[in-house]
């Protein structure tokens, strides 16, 4: 399966490319005061309102700062996911969500058999597997948790590379 990779701080992560709708440069994000801190704010994507998550905060690592290199990965909704994604058991959220990441990486093709299960201390909601990518470790993230974000109890999960 192909994965869109990106960095949070210095760590490399990947999500199935089937979940990605588009990648956008930084826009004007309106913060939502009083909302869950993982929510960076709302974004106007050509007339559609997109909820931007600060992936760093979601993973309880380093909050992603906004910078020249930071990007927003806009995800497909459950409705717009392709049949291929559906058969692969991938789901996202009924809302259009986006992930704020430090910078964007390459598209990585990872064979299923090359994916190792996450080490016990990382097994949790977010991480679906680990892949060796060149000299780096690529942490593959699932997207199923996105729809359950509201109910997430926020147990800290430390992801180290």
């Amino acid at each position: 399966m192909q994965y869109a990779t990106f960095y949070i701080d210095e760590a490399l992560y990947g999500i199935p490319i089937l979940t990605v709708r588009e990648i956008s440069r930084f826009f004007d994000i309106t913060p939502i005061q009083g909302a869950d801190e993982r929510i960076e704010g709302l974004l106007n994507l050509r007339g559609q309102i997109v909820t931007v998550l600060n992936l760093g905060r979601c993973l309880h690592t380093i909050p992603v700062p906004l910078s020249e290199k930071s990007r927003i990965i806009i995800l497909k909704t459950d409705e717009t996911l392709t049949a291929e994604a559906a058969t692969a058991g991938i789901s996202t959220s009924p809302d259009t969500l986006a992930l704020l990441v430090s910078s964007i990486g390459d598209v990585v093709d990872a064979e299923d058999n090359s994916i190792e299960p996450p080490p016990p201390h990382l097994s949790g909601t977010y991480v679906s597997g680990i892949v060796q990518h060149g000299s780096e470790l690529l942490t593959l993230l699932s997207t199923e948790w996105l729809c359950a974000l509201e109910e997430d109890d926020g147990i800290p999960l430390t992801v180290k590379s």
């Binding site: 004007d28 309106t30 939502i32 005061q33 009083g34 909302a35 869950d36 929510i39 709302l42 106007n44 007339g47 309102i49 909820t51 959220s93 009924p94 809302d95 259009t96 969500l97 974000l149 509201e150």
Partner: peptide, 20 residues
């Protein structure tokens, strides 16, 4: 959006004339 609905001080969102 569903996940910000718990934030009750806001009824909803809109896009302003300046794109905000």
């Amino acid at each position: 959006p569903q996940i910000v609905r718990s934030c009750k001080i806001f009824a909803s969102a809109t896009i302003m004339g300046d794109g905000h």
